[in-house]
Design a protein around this nucleic acid. Structure first.
Length: 206
DNA sequence: GACAAGATTAGCT
DNA sequence: GCTAATCTTGTCT
């Protein structure tokens, strides 16, 4: 499959554009022992100081510091005492915006993903959630603030873009900003989060 | 099968 | 005390 590494300048675009552009792209992780690869099928945009659900809404802290860097690095945070979520920082330095990777479709290294997640079955539950994806890719604090154009985690786009419809809904699991249509996913993809809420599709983008 | 509710976890919304 | 989540268990159609 012909792929091209995503350039830094793409990450500098506005966050909603990046959230949509990342759909269908491949995210890879290289370790000494294996390579993991998966197709991004679901994202959410978090928009700096305009968005009350965003970690960077109030002020810069030690935790959200990576969000205020230049676009194109990772922001990994710890939630609910147990889990990690992986974000791609977007826009210019000081903006505090990012795209949360909510779900992926495994392509390469499925056996290792299953082992990382301690999950015996290779069905959609392997990676259909933000923390499931992090477990499958063995993403933790050590993967915070990586440069996604040169470090062990990278994102590639395909030379020939897949044909799919983007569905837009409100975001999942937040209180403030819940009405904002910032969740994007590939329509009818089996690996998109199965969630009882946020089912209503606001619009579709071809 | 779909949906709801409770337990779990630790850093800070 | 609350949370950008998941797993397990229970209830319902």
């Amino acid at each position: 499959m012909d792929t091209i590494l995503l350039e830094k300048k793409l990450y500098m675009k506005d966050t909603i554009t990046v959230a949509q552009k990342l759909l269908g792209c491949l995210i890879t992780k290289e370790t000494p022992n294996y390579t993991l690869s998966a197709r991004i099928v679901e994202t959410e945009a978090y928009l700096g100081n305009n968005d009350p659900a965003c970690h960077a809404y109030r002020k810069l802290t030690d935790r959200n510091r990576p969000m205020f860097e230049y676009g194109g690095i990772s922001y990994v945070y710890f939630v609910y005492g147990n889990y990690f979520c992986f974000n791609v920082v977007t826009e210019n330095k000081g903006t505090g915006s990012a795209v949360l990777i909510r779900a992926v479709e495994p392509i390469e290294g499925i056996h290792e993903m299953r082992k990382n997640r301690n999950y015996p079955i290779g069905d959609v539950n392997l990676t259909n959630g933000p923390a499931k994806f992090c477990m499958a890719f063995d993403i933790g604090r050590k993967d915070n603030s990586l440069d996604l154009t040169e470090d062990r985690i990278k994102i590639f786009r395909k030379k020939r873009r897949d044909s799919f419809t983007i569905a837009v809904t409100t975001r999942i699991g937040i209180k403030e900003g819940a009405e904002l249509p910032y969740r994007f996913f590939i329509k009818d993809n089996a690996y998109v989060t199965k969630h009882r809420l946020n089912k209503e599709i606001i619009k579709e983008i071809k």
